[in-house]
Design a binder for these strands. Structure first.
Lengths: 211, 211
DNA sequence: TTACTTTTCAAACAAGTGTTTAAATCAGGT
DNA sequence: ACCTGATTTAAACACTTGTTTGAAAAGTAA
């Protein structure tokens, strides 16, 4: 077996298991068994379990964040041309559309998004740090741009609403109806596009609410 | 030492550690060391680590949910009297006020709320199941009542917005500025009352947005 | 084939986990 | 004082964890 195959297998199954079971709760023995490779392969190819997590997150998050970054940039340049602040709707869409498109791409992508959505509140420092290191620049860029769309808001109010926004987004990212997820009392029977539309409307209304 | 003291100590420190480190990542040896009791005390008094978690959650969640339940009931009886559907604002307030009041009561309460807020998306089935079993009845009641306030929404849209709502609320519950939490790029410098006001406005606007 | 590197493999390692056990200690009632 | 049941204790148990090791196998280039 080529070395790249083993690496890919490990990344794929790690992504799935980390999402489903959590990082700490995923055993390297279970992972390597499912992937059909030897236990020592993880340490040989990645050095450690933590490095494997890093590789799993980086592999998908880098291209995804690049897309989001570019989409936001488009909105910003158009805004500069028209000498107007960017609209909340455009910015939200620039952030959400690549996310949802990515999420719909495959079942594996859904697993990954689940993993990411949970990282915000993950008690495990390992997961949180790994995620935030890769995501921070984008979020700060997004936050700065969104600020321009909502100049009338006091800074603390803006920060608070940013927190609410992230909560809603990560809730959607964590939900995967029809997947391995446990039952919830909420059953969102909606295709992904409609769901994004609804999330957009919800967030826009919340962000633009009178202070 | 009276037996009740040991039990209390275990509950207190378990609450703190489960919130800070997560359930699985909390070692019973560390827990019993911090609490100053013997390792075997957990199994003697609670039977198992899982039962301890259950006791931790139940101790605080039962009275909290009772308060929320009663507050919602007040809103509903007033609505019935006036032959009007309950307002979104009143219902949200009935749910949020007891939560925030509880959260402000003490630092331990904040830990607990953090633990609860995370339970939604906890990869650990143990934590999730334990939480949902105790919280489900209240959430279903709340959901049913809120549905009456938003009769014009299609059912799928309502369900989706419910998901967004829970996301925002749990994001706030998980945040504990000034506590042991790691740094975030969001810094919400707001007292709890203002924060609740803002959350209320945000959610109300989002829920009542045109479909 | 030979020589060399990369990759795989089974086994062992050291440390940590929740739980159990049986003896020791403490408490309250008679 | 004594007895009895509740509680605490140190030690051990059985098991899992991520990681390391050194030899075997596979792959590559001369």
């Amino acid at each position: 077996m080529a070395s790249t195959d083993t690496k890919q297998l490990l990344l794929d199954y790690a992504e799935k298991l980390f999402a489903q079971e959590g990082f700490h709760h995923t055993s390297m023995r279970v992972l390597t068994n499912q992937a059909g490779v030897n236990l020592a392969a993880v340490n040989y190819h990645f050095g450690s379990k933590e490095n494997l997590l890093h590789a799993v997150i980086e592999r998908r998050l880098k291209p995804l964040n690049k897309k989001r970054f570019q989409a936001i940039e488009v909105v910003m340049t158009q805004a500069q041309k028209s000498l107007q602040p960017p609209s909340v709707q455009d910015l939200l869409l620039a952030f959400l559309r690549p996310t949802f498109e990515f999420r719909c791409a495959s079942e594996e992508a859904k697993d990954f998004i689940h993993l990411i959505g949970r990282s915000w509140n993950d008690p495990d420092q390992t997961v949180y740090n790994c995620f935030i290191k890769l995501a921070m620049p984008l979020f700060e860029f997004f936050s700065t741009c969104l600020r321009l769309s909502l100049p009338h808001l006091d800074e603390p109010v803006f920060q608070a609403r940013l927190q609410f926004l992230i909560g809603s987004i990560s809730a959607v990212m964590c939900s995967n109806e029809g997947g391995y997820a446990r039952k919830s009392f909420i059953s969102v029977t909606m295709n992904e596009e409609e769901k994004m539309d609804q999330l957009l409307k919800f967030l826009q209304a919340g962000l633009e609410a009178p202070q």
